[in-house]
Design a protein around this nucleic acid. Structure first.
Lengths: 225, 225
DNA sequence: AATTATAATTAAATATTTTTAATCATGATA
DNA sequence: TATCATGATTAAAAATATTTAATTATAATT
């Protein structure tokens, strides 16, 4: 799996919290930049595209909510709000404005990490499987390559999209229709042909599919252990 | 926009909470099925594929955490945990086991809705834009159609994928490389050609692009108001 | 204003993918 | 087990997409 370091912007006017949280995040393999104010953060995001922003609500000068308000139109980066304990109305306001999550201070560091990973998983897909192996088959969605018994098979984008979906939902049945939707094809027979093509590449014995199976009347499933 | 009703499984052994939350969710346009135990929920998910599960941790019989443990291998559905106030260790354990979010009881109904939408947005993409309009241009990503000044233009999957990405990240610059990655092409010149093709379809004056602009040295951006 | 680098456009060649159709295989059911 | 429905396989035809290359246009820099 690719080693990727998510870049986090930590915005808090309390120096103690900044250094503490930064240290903790660094230990957990994140790259961290800090801002001591919403104003400073606004400058930073002009220059760097962060993967995530951790934002204190209550700050001298502009508040965290102000920051969100200022940028909600142009900012695509997920935000975790740090709120004072019990301030339900602020939390709700923050979420309504577009924050992705919040954490009440004081929080457990472990919980912060979980929430960060949770969000990153969904946005930049840090944990999505791009390279998987089962038995003698290795699928590399990045390189568009399948290696089966040391033989290489190229896959095209169509095949990649289908495999990607199935790999991230193993055991789920996909109808021909839903597969067609995925790749913008509407002829059912065409899906058949694509499945045959795929089986030739990923199955040890394509005539007796073990991984990419048919569910009669319903569609296809990928079984990977 | 398509009218889609997310189907939620609500698992709680307290009849009062079940009916109250169900009613509230119904009012907010969700389809709700309830279970009074983890065991019953396990039966339900065999039959129905839910979009989301709201799961009380503390239940007589199997707990919510037990439920997650039982199904974490095969269950792809996002889970929101309902926890007792202050039970940080349970929250952390739940998130570690794979829950997507939690809410401490008693919670504000409004906050529950926000959290549900937040998760659904990320999983089934309920809020992702599939049909957008600006000026005299309408893009329908479902039908693979662009209507510009009442004239129809078909788009193919390649174009759809690029537009989809840009539409959901307006104002973001995409390098040729990142676009290529999206559609599994690595020749930069090919991206040029595709952009030209796209401009012919979405721009009022393709020679003077207003929406799909070039950022010299960086890539392309979509500006929609 | 001239130079240089980057981007846009076009059309033709090339390559790839989808569709179709015919045939075979398999599973379900009466 | 005979029949019917559904799925698999193949190869060829048709449609579509990508690549290339030559030319033109535009922006940035000296």
């Amino acid at each position: 799996m690719d080693k990727f370091k998510a870049h986090i912007l930590l915005v808090d006017d309390d120096e103690g919290i900044r250094s503490l949280v930064k240290k903790y995040l660094n230990e957990n393999n994140f790259l961290v930049t800090t801002s001591d104010s919403a104003e400073n953060a606004s400058e930073k995001i002009k220059i760097i595209k962060f993967d995530l922003i951790i934002l204190d609500i209550m700050m001298s000068g502009k508040s965290g909510l102000d920051f969100i308000n200022d940028h909600k139109k142009d900012l695509d980066t997920p935000i975790i709000l740090l709120t004072a304990k019990g301030e339900a109305s602020e939390r709700v306001e923050g979420l309504e404005l577009g924050a992705d999550d919040y954490l009440a201070k004081p929080f457990e560091p472990k919980e912060l990490i979980l929430r960060i990973k949770n969000i990153l998983t969904k946005t930049i897909k840090i944990d999505q499987k791009r390279i998987i192996e089962f038995e003698n088959v290795k699928i590399d969605l990045n390189k568009l390559l399948i290696i089966k018994n040391k033989k290489e098979f190229k896959i095209n984008n169509t095949e990649k999209v289908i495999l990607e979906k199935m790999i991230n939902n193993p055991g789920n049945t996909f109808s021909r229709e839903s597969i067609g939707q995925l790749i913008s094809l509407d002829k059912e027979r065409s899906i058949d042909v694509i499945i045959t093509r795929l089986r030739k590449k990923i199955e040890i014995d394509p005539k007796n599919p073990k991984f990419l199976q048919t569910i009669r009347g319903a569609g296809y499933v990928l079984w990977i252990e």
